[in-house]
Design a protein around this nucleic acid. Structure first.
Lengths: 212, 212
DNA sequence: ATATAACATGAGACATGATTCATGTTTCAT
DNA sequence: ATGAAACATGAATCATGTCTCATGTTATAT
């Protein structure tokens, strides 16, 4: 195993300490920390959460934390990016072989609610990002909006949806999903009731005005 | 002056210290603190804000803060309740002599966007309440939802809006308003563009599906 | 003029928590 | 078996921040 230790003067140049686990044991510890962090951040919020508590829950010493994460901010960021990625993956996968854009919205909303029910903790984290890392916060929603806009534009071009400024519609839909998720999943700790899901879909599809 | 020091065991019984200003001078100081707190909480978030900074901005000593507020949590709560109250007042006043429910929605959205533009700081505060005082957070949105539901029910009973579960519609509308406000007023520091406002209103009134 | 309630001060007691570091333990290729 | 890299420890350091308190100032009613 050629290690090239000799000419390794990059070692202190880029301040990024090792941080990646190099064995399975290390990776397992790293995962324990991430899992604990998800729980603690989610229940207490970023600022009230402490590294002590996270390491305690993970069953490791405080110092161990810094073997795998540069700082409290960084593990938080990693959690957020992970959440963003897996939620978008789940939705786009579920929606991939759908017949119409309307069906895509139905399935998308459903998957979103199911996801936050499973990840109530991480969902709460998102709300707090803006006070920890504002850019990350914008990134989080921009990622969603971009994919959404693309889908809407196609549906509008195809005449499935009428033309309305896609960015506005995207943020409006995201807002609807977030608030219904907050009201039922977060507050009631239940599924969003079918009635609510149906109402929401009718609302965004057809509006509140009576159809002639 | 009979001080009754000996038997004065009420002194510690009710923990509520004076807290209300008793003169104009005191009231002015109290206001200076509230104004400073609005600014600091709004820009840095609750946890990053410090009493030192608030008193510095208000131009008073640290100890003075505790003459008027019991704690950091309490001044935050007062700010939130004040915001909630004045926003609801502005909307209900603006909407009071409106002809139709549709017009009420148009004006309501407009006033909401105008309000958060003026109170960008306080608007950001709201997002953080849930990690400081979860009950207060629910209270904040429940207050809005209740008024909204009432208005929607009337409109539905009158046949102005078709019947859809009013609570769902209320939270959906609130979500739309919050997210468009976030995207344009908070992120761009601008007004919500007329195009966006129009799109949003069309969307909630008539939906995205093409009308025959 | 002066007593007194209200207002104001800011140093410091007290608490908390992120991060570091000197020291140990485990694993495994040789 | 052994040396070195990886992993692990937790007490100590360092920074920050809330809230208290002993003391001082202002305004005003008599």
């Amino acid at each position: 195993m050629n290690r090239e230790i000799g000419n390794n003067r990059t070692e202190n140049k880029n301040r990024v300490k090792s941080l990646q686990a190099k064995t399975d044991r290390g990776e397992a510890t790293r995962q324990k920390l991430l899992t604990a962090a998800e729980e603690i951040f989610g229940t207490k919020g970023f600022h009230r959460a402490s590294i002590v508590e996270i390491t305690l829950k993970a069953g490791v010493a405080q110092g161990t934390f810094y073997l795998y994460f540069q700082s409290k901010d960084k593990i938080f960021e990693e959690l957020v990016r992970e959440l963003n990625h897996s939620l978008r993956c789940e939705i786009s996968h579920a929606v991939s072989e759908v017949k119409s854009r309307q069906e895509a919205e139905e399935i998308g909303f459903g998957v979103f609610f199911a996801f936050i029910k499973e990840h109530r903790n991480l969902y709460r984290i998102v709300q707090e990002i803006q006070f920890v890392n504002e850019d990350l916060y914008k990134w989080y929603y921009t990622q969603f909006a971009e994919g959404y806009i693309e889908g809407l534009e196609k549906a509008m071009a195809a005449g499935e949806f009428r033309y309305l400024d896609p960015e506005t519609v995207a943020y409006a839909f995201i807002g609807v999903a977030e608030f219904l998720g907050m009201r039922w999943v977060l507050w009631e700790k239940e599924d969003v009731p079918p009635k609510t899901l149906n109402t929401a879909l009718k609302l965004i599809m057809e509006g509140v005005l009576p159809r002639k």
